[in-house]
Amino acid sequence: MPSETPQAEVGPTGCPHRSGPHSAKGSLEKGSPEDKEAKEPLWIRPDAPSRCTWQLGRPASESPHHHTAPAKSPKILPDILKKIGDTPMVRINKIGKKFGLKCELLAKCEFFNAGGSVKDRISLRMIEDAERDGTLKPGDTIIEPTSGNTGIGLALAAAVRGYRCIIVMPEKMSSEKVDVLRALGAEIVRTPTNARFDSPESHVGVAWRLKNEIPNSHILDQYRNASNPLAHYDTTADEILQQCDGKLDMLVASVGTGGTITGIARKLKEKCPGCRIIGVDPEGSILAEPEELNQTEQTTYEVEGIGYDFIPTVLDRTVVDKWFKSNDEEAFTFARMLIAQEGLLCGGSAGSTVAVAVKAAQELQEGQRCVVILPDSVRNYMTKFLSDRWMLQKGFLKEEDLTEKKPWWWHLRVQELGLSAPLTVLPTITCGHTIEILREKGFDQAPVVDEAGVILGMVTLGNMLSSLLAGKVQPSDQVGKVIYKQFKQIRLTDTLGRLSHILEMDHFALVV
Rank of each mutant, 00 (worst) to 15 (best):
S23W: 14
V10Y: 10
G274A: 11
K98E: 13
P59R: 03
S19Q: 11
G246T: 11
K247R: 13
P2F: 14
I219M: 09
C244I: 04
C275P: 01
E270P: 04
K75C: 11
K83E: 12
W208T: 12
R276F: 10
I166P: 02
K271Q: 12
E239K: 09
A237R: 01
A207V: 02
C52T: 03
L81I: 13
W43I: 07
R121V: 01
D238T: 11
S73C: 12
F112C: 01
V252W: 07
H218P: 04
A237D: 07
P41F: 04
A8P: 02
V160T: 04
E270A: 11
G100F: 11
N93W: 02
A48M: 09
L241R: 11
P200H: 12
G153C: 05
I76Y: 08
M89L: 12
G258H: 00
H17L: 13
H22D: 09
W208M: 12
G20H: 12
P74M: 14
S32E: 15
T191F: 01
I219R: 02
P12S: 12
I127E: 05
R132F: 07
K30L: 03
E110K: 04
P12G: 08
P88T: 07
S199A: 04
L81A: 05
R224A: 12
G139C: 09
K102E: 08
R125E: 08
K72N: 11
C103F: 05
A114F: 05
K247N: 15
G26A: 02
R209V: 08
L77M: 13
S175K: 08
I142A: 02
E4H: 11
I142W: 00
E213D: 12
A195E: 07
A157S: 15
T262I: 04
K94I: 02
F112M: 10
I44A: 11
K39H: 03
D179W: 00
R58V: 09
V178N: 02
G246W: 04
T141V: 14
H66F: 11
D79F: 06
K72Q: 11
A24V: 15
A186K: 01
D129W: 14
K211G: 10
Q7L: 09
V168D: 03
D179S: 08
K25I: 12
P6L: 15
P229R: 05
C103M: 05
W54Y: 08
Q222Y: 00
Y163W: 00
S19D: 09
G153P: 03
